[in-house]
Structure formats: C-alpha cells, structure tokens
Simulated scan of single mutants.
Amino acid sequence: MIFIYYLILGLVYSTVGFFVIRWLMRVPRKGKYKALVAVIGIVVLLLIPTWDEIGGRIYLRHLCATQAGVKIYKTIELPAKYWDESGEPMFFNQYGYLDHDFWVKELDESGGRIERYSSIFSIDKDTSPVKERLGQKVLAEVTTFRFWGGWIRRNFSPNNVADSCVFISKPEFSREFYGQLFEPEPSQE
C-alpha cells in the first residue's frame, strides 16, 4: 500500500516538474537560453529529493576525518604467556579478532552510547568505551558515526543499513586497536 502512495507521489512530482520546466523554457526568447533553463530545471528537479543523500555523505566524511577515531587512555601490560617468542600477541584468533575467552576475562565493552548527531542528515554518533573487566577503568574509547541515508533511501529501502566511518569496518581494525591497547610486561631479568 505504501509503495502505491510513493509511486503516485513520484508521478505527481515528475508531472509538476515537467510542466514547471516547460513554463520556464517559455520565458527566454533565444534558443541557447532555453536549453540552459531546461538543464538547470532538470538538475534542480533531481536535487530536490536527493540533496540530503549527497550532503549527508559529504558531512559523514568530514566527521570521520575530524572527530571519529580511537582514543587510548591507558595500556595494559600482559604477562609473557600472552606473547610468542617474537613478541607478537597470542590473544587473537585466526581471523584477527580478539579471542573470546581472553576478551571475556580482561575487558568490558558495555556502556556505549548512540546519540543523534545530525537530524537534518540522519547521522548518529556512536561512542563505545573499552574498560578493564575488574577495575572498570576506561582504557580507550572508539567513536564512529553512522549515516542512515537520505529520505529516499530511508523510506524506500526495505533493508536500510547505515554507512559508517571506513576505519571501523577494515578487517585489520581489531588487531591494530587491541595491539595498541596491550603491551608485554617488562622482562624481570
């Protein structure tokens, strides 16, 4: 039912836009100005329903470059049993993610907050603290932004998924982040 509503809305919008452009083309007397008015009219007609998608992506890139990222407040020194002979961490699984048993024992990542950062562009700010399991001291904070798309994508897509900052979705993010958070204890020699 809602599809029919949007279909009718699109047809009405296109029809009104067509007649507005035709009316605007009658105003100038010379041919080259008529073509210019037609091109400008079509561009404006296309931008009206899509400007928030374009502007939102630009704003998301800006936020990711200036405000998103990782802040490490404190590192944890781990005993030698967590490191191999070459000094590489052994608390990652074969896919490069933190080993589940290690993660449950050492860290608490609860208490994240998601807040609407921009209602014009439907952008959320997601801040996730990483705390020590026992002491509950905040060790680091990961901040990213999510863009839910323009109004066309939000209303027409049956499975709307947000775009987020690129660094968070890279496969090596977990290894790099937790690799900075943990370091070997100084040797007792």
Rank of each mutant, 00 (worst) to 15 (best):
M1V: 13
I2M: 08
I2P: 06
Y5S: 05
G10R: 01
F18P: 02
V20E: 09
V20N: 02
R22Q: 06
W23P: 06
W23S: 10
L24P: 04
V27K: 04
R29C: 02
G31N: 12
G31F: 06
L36I: 15
A38V: 10
V43F: 12
V44H: 07
L46E: 05
L47F: 09
P49Q: 10
T50F: 12
I54R: 03
A65K: 13
Q67N: 01
G69C: 04
V70G: 14
V70A: 12
I72C: 01
E77S: 03
P79W: 11
W83D: 01
D84E: 01
S86V: 11
E88G: 06
F92H: 03
N93C: 03
N93T: 11
D99E: 15
D101G: 11
D101S: 01
D101V: 01
F102E: 00
E109C: 03
G111Q: 13
R113I: 11
R113W: 11
R116W: 09
Y117S: 07
I120Y: 12
I120L: 12
D124M: 05
T127P: 07
E132I: 15
R133M: 12
V138W: 04
A140N: 00
E141S: 10
T143A: 04
F147G: 00
F147Y: 02
W148D: 00
G150N: 05
R154A: 04
R154I: 13
N155V: 05
S157H: 11
C165K: 12
K170L: 15
K170A: 15
E172I: 09
S174C: 14
E176L: 14
F177V: 00
F182C: 00
P184T: 03
Q188T: 06
